[in-house]
């Protein structure tokens, strides 16, 4: 099998239990080389367990995992130098200085990145001599990412990379992950932030209760769904009975909700008929639209449809 075209990660029928609680329930998924793949799901969905099995921390109880063609348990020593792992939290001595920790991890690798450059890119310059325990949550996260990257891995596993970061640090981290991908590193990230998955991922695997419930590009997942959202804002207040009359005009399977005197939210089939029906209704009822906007279906909507639950609180 040619190494370049084979998947970076193959998870096949993975089952993991803690006591009688099933964390991962027959999960199968693949990660293409050179891609950014997001594993998306609520807390407790089995994301971290799956990742830690790929990283060789846990032995599959059933099913198999192959990473870069290797068995993470049996071929651990060959695999570990080739992957970078960012843990969800911790991973440094409490008294170690940020830069000292990064330099230490660098020394374990054959061709590490320049730690000065890496500190600079991740905004760790001004806290380089701060002990780990005094770093902010966001600084600890960025140091964690730096430690995962410093060995120049082929494959990077990042668990909730931007948890605890402020918006500016999140953007910097996203830009960095995009650059890493452009330089040929395969990235697997877990997240429960939909915007993160939408922005970064080539492929999204949505998992819930240890099972894969949907896979695809963000565009594939959000396209061709059951509904679109149209927001209609008009110049003068709607006439009495407007929502009912619009619902009748649109027919079955449509929901119309009046938000205030001049705006309404319409959810219905995502096709051009819906939009043209709304504008015809406006003409017939002598209502002048100020704005008429069609909302894209988001991953949030997809998740809600698939699981009946909100992803983010």
């Amino acid at each position: 099998m040619p190494a370049a075209s084979s998947p970076a990660v193959v998870v096949d029928g993975l089952v993991m239990r803690y006591g009688d609680k099933v964390a991962v329930d027959g999960l199968s998924l693949e990660v293409a080389r050179g891609s950014v793949t997001a594993v998306l799901g609520p807390n407790g969905a089995g994301k971290t367990t799956t990742l830690e099995t790929c990283e060789g921390y846990r032995k599959p109880q059933s099913g198999s995992v192959r990473v870069l063609g290797l068995d993470p348990q049996r071929d651990r020593r060959d695999l570990l130098p080739r992957i970078g792992v960012m843990l969800q939290s911790g991973g440094a001595w409490s008294g170690v200085r940020a830069r000292e920790m990064l330099d230490h991890v660098a020394r374990l690798h054959a061709h590490p990145l320049d730690t000065g450059m890496l500190s600079d890119r991740l905004g760790l310059d001004d806290c380089g001599s701060t002990p780990y325990r005094r770093l902010s949550g966001g600084q600890q996260q960025r140091l964690g990412l730096a430690m995962a990257l410093v060995g120049r891995p082929e494959l990077l596993f990042v668990d909730e990379p931007t948890a605890g970061m402020d918006p500016a640090a999140r953007r910097t981290t996203w830009e960095l992950l995009e650059e890493i991908r452009a330089d040929g590193v395969t990235v697997v990230l877990t997240t429960h932030h939909l915007d993160e998955a939408e922005r970064l991922a080539d492929t999204v695997h949505i998992i819930d209760r240890g099972r894969l419930i949907a896979s695809g590009t963000p565009a594939e997942l959000t396209r061709g769904g059951r509904s679109a959202t149209i927001r209609l804002v008009v110049t003068r207040p709607f006439p009495d009975g407007a929502p009912e009359s619009l619902r009748i005009a649109l027919g079955e399977g449509t929901e119309v909700r009046q938000l205030d005197a001049v705006s309404m939210l319409i959810s219905g089939p995502a096709d051009s008929t819906t939009l043209s029906t709304v504008s015809r209704w406006c003409e017939e009822h002598d209502v002048l639209p100020e704005s008429l906007s069609l909302g894209q279906r988001t991953l949030e909507d997809v998740f809600l449809e698939l699981t009946g639950r909100e992803l983010e609180p």
Binding site: L80, L108, A110, L113, E154, E179, D183, G184
Partner: peptide, 18 residues
């Protein structure tokens, strides 16, 4: 592949790591 983060993985010699 080129670029700052182009992969070049490997372990340092064991003696250096220790």
């Amino acid at each position: 592949m080129s670029g700052t983060f182009a992969p070049s993985p490997g372990a340092a010699p064991l003696a250096r790591q220790v």
